[in-house]
Amino acid sequence: MLRKLHEMGIRSEHAYIAGFASIGLSVASWMVSNRKERAGIDRADRWGIFVGEWAPTFFALGNGLRSYELAEEHEQTRIPQQASHEDHHERAGV
Rank of each mutant, 00 (worst) to 15 (best):
I79G: 13
V94I: 10
R38P: 01
A92W: 08
M31D: 12
H6Y: 15
H74Q: 13
S26G: 12
S29H: 02
M1L: 13
G52A: 08
F58A: 08
I10L: 14
A18G: 06
V27T: 11
E90C: 04
I23N: 00
V32H: 11
R66P: 04
H14D: 13
W30C: 07
G64Y: 02
E7W: 07
S67R: 12
V94S: 00
E53F: 08
P80Q: 12
F59T: 05
E90W: 03
S26T: 03
I10W: 01
R46I: 04
G52D: 06
N34P: 02
T57A: 08
G48A: 09
M31H: 08
I79K: 13
E7D: 15
E90G: 03
S33L: 05
K36Q: 13
L5D: 07
R46E: 02
Y68T: 00
R35F: 12
G93S: 10
I23D: 00
E69Y: 11
S26I: 05
A18V: 01
F58K: 06
E13I: 02
M31E: 14
D87P: 02
G64P: 03
N63W: 11
A39S: 13
G48R: 03
L70P: 05
E13K: 12
E75S: 10
R91G: 05
E7H: 12
M1T: 15
R66E: 13
H74K: 14
D87M: 07
H85C: 00
Q81D: 11
P80G: 06
W47I: 03
I10F: 06
G40A: 11
F50W: 04
D42F: 01
K36G: 10
S26M: 06
A18H: 01
M31N: 08
V94P: 03
L70V: 09
N63V: 10
R11S: 01
F50N: 00
H89W: 07
M8L: 15
R66F: 05
P56C: 04
A21L: 05
R91C: 03
H85V: 08
R38H: 10
V51N: 02
L2N: 14
H74L: 11
F20N: 07
A60Y: 10
D45V: 09
E75T: 09
R66W: 05
N63I: 09
M1C: 10
A71M: 13
E7S: 14
A44T: 06
E90P: 05
I79P: 04
S12N: 10
E37G: 09
A44S: 13
S33M: 14
I41L: 01
I10P: 00
W47H: 11
R35E: 15
S84K: 12
G93N: 09
D87Y: 04
G48P: 01
V94F: 00
H85S: 10
P80S: 12
R66D: 10
S22C: 02
E75A: 11
P80C: 05
E7T: 13
L70E: 15
Q82M: 11
A44D: 06
A39R: 11
L61Y: 03
G24P: 06
R38S: 14
S12L: 00
H74D: 15
G62I: 08
H74M: 10
L65Q: 04
G52L: 03
A83T: 14
K4F: 11
I23V: 13
